[in-house]
Amino acid sequence: MKNPGIELFKDGKRLDGRKVDELRPIKIEAGVLERADGSAYLEWGANKVLVAVYGPKECLPRHLSDPYKAVLTYRYNMAPFSVDDRKRPGPDRRSTEISKISAEALEKVVLLEQFPNSMIKVFCEVLQADAGTRCASLTAASVALADAGIPMRDLVASCAAGKAGGEVILDLGKKEDNFGEADVPIAITPHDEEIVLFQMDGALSKEEFQKAVSLAKQGCKTIHEIQKAALKKRFEQVKPPIKAVKTEIKKSEVSK
């Protein structure tokens, strides 16, 4: 997109007053949905994402099931009201791609071999979008998976870096994303810094690229601390009471 003349970087500060290596404020809450097996709600700047996790459960459709491991499905979906112009509902080229790479990122950490012939489903709903929603969704999804009691090697923390106004910066905002030079979203496993998701849009020199990646990794580490705090807080709260009564069976109803 052509820059209509916005100065993205001025006097060592960005459009919203952040420093080059500063993230937007992030808030994560785990266990927000009653009927999902695990869930998380995330606010990242103006981004708002709600994630629900189901499973491990019976693999449907059956032909997808794998006798050696569980199948992980990931749905990234933007609400029609999440962006300025109404987003046409339903999957499109962009959200299909994001769903695929995010599922592949989570497959690297979830111990799928423990649940052969089953399925783990992750649903990410972007309620409000303001650049960096794939990173926000993936970050929240890994919290929701942990909340569901699903075994994982590590969490996944995700964050973008890029270049705008000639400067390599962390966590691009909407205008920086639209009118900047490059955007590099990455996701890592925070403990051993293994990269599980990597994309790049735009152009960077080798030096700028290396700087962007190390900046994004630093950002992911900060995000991991927030994920950790959200999960630890989850157990401090009073747990939800026994689930609602399922059925009451009378002998007369039992056909004998």
Binding site: V109, A146, G149, I150, P151, R153, D154, L155, H191, R234
Partner: peptide, 29 residues
């Protein structure tokens, strides 16, 4: 939380933990 280090020593590992390079990490929340 998943991925958190539980012990540097090579102990007996029960449910919800795994061993990597002689160290024990949690696999569950």
């Amino acid at each position: 939380i998943p991925g958190e280090k539980l012990s540097d020593k090579n102990l007996k590992t029960g449910y919800g933990a795994y061993v990597k390079q002689g160290k024990i990490y949690a696999s569950m929340h």
